[in-house]
């Protein structure tokens, strides 16, 4: 359970830091009166609620993955564990997702320049390579099944399928947002409203890339 406890500890430290910065030790009964707004200078360019909401959501997703990784370590210690050979294809897939994430970054950079063309290109690259990544993962499943590594034949296999499957489901959720964003962009929505979505997508893609790198490293090293 070390992994999840580490994550929870990090979450607690983050929360406490936030609370500390917000004067959790002040004596509120001594400070009656108006309080200056915007003291901490929150940028007004981006809707902070959506951004905060995404961060909280990513914390939830991290909790899910951290728990699976904890379970992975605990289960690995039992004596029926037989590691499975990771297909080399996964390296290619990693590259695909990397490019997908790069595409999102490019779209976001373009959005900041208010360059519609650039956003469109970035989104197309991101979407295409992410789809390719998911296809590649499915292919990896096929390769493993063909060589007799079925999901039920060993817990190591089961964890492999669960990790990759869960990660792909999260990407699919992201692709849905990508789809609506792309649709809006092409049907001529305001760049400002699209900009926020592109930023959220960028964060989400980077996050899922990191998750995949962690999972991949974990699978390779064990």
């Amino acid at each position: 359970m070390e992994t999840i406890l580490l994550f929870i500890a990090a979450a607690i430290v983050t929360c406490l830091t936030y609370l500390w910065r917000n004067q959790i030790t002040e004596k509120p009964w001594l400070t009656a009166g108006a309080i200056e707004d915007d003291a901490s200078g929150v940028s007004d360019e981006i809707d902070p609620a959506a951004r905060t909401g995404l961060m909280v959501f990513l914390a939830v997703v991290t909790s899910v993955f951290a728990l699976f990784i904890s379970a992975y370590f605990l289960r690995m210690e039992l004596n029926d564990w037989r590691p499975l050979p990771e297909p080399g294809l996964l390296w290619v897939n990693t590259l695909l997702l990397f490019i997908g994430s790069f595409g999102m970054q490019a779209a976001w950079n373009a959005a900041r320049r208010e360059d519609k063309r650039g956003i469109q290109n970035g989104l197309l690259i991101a979407g295409a390579f992410t789809l390719a990544f998911i296809g590649g993962q499915l292919w990896a499943w096929q390769l493993l099944s063909d060589s007799g590594y079925f999901v039920y034949s060993n817990p190591a296999n089961a964890f492999f399928f669960v990790f990759t499957g869960l990660h792909a489901i999260h990407l699919l959720g992201g692709l849905w947002v990508w789809l609506t964003t792309t649709h809006r962009l092409w049907s001529g929505a305001h760049l400002e409203t699209v900009g926020l979505r592109v930023e959220l997508c960028k964060t989400y893609w980077h996050y899922l890339l990191i998750v995949w790198l962690v999972l991949f490293a974990l699978l390779l090293s064990t």
Partner: peptide, 8 residues
């Protein structure tokens, strides 16, 4: 809202 600090 305005003035609603955490400790309020």
């Amino acid at each position: 809202t305005h003035g609603m600090t955490l400790m309020r």
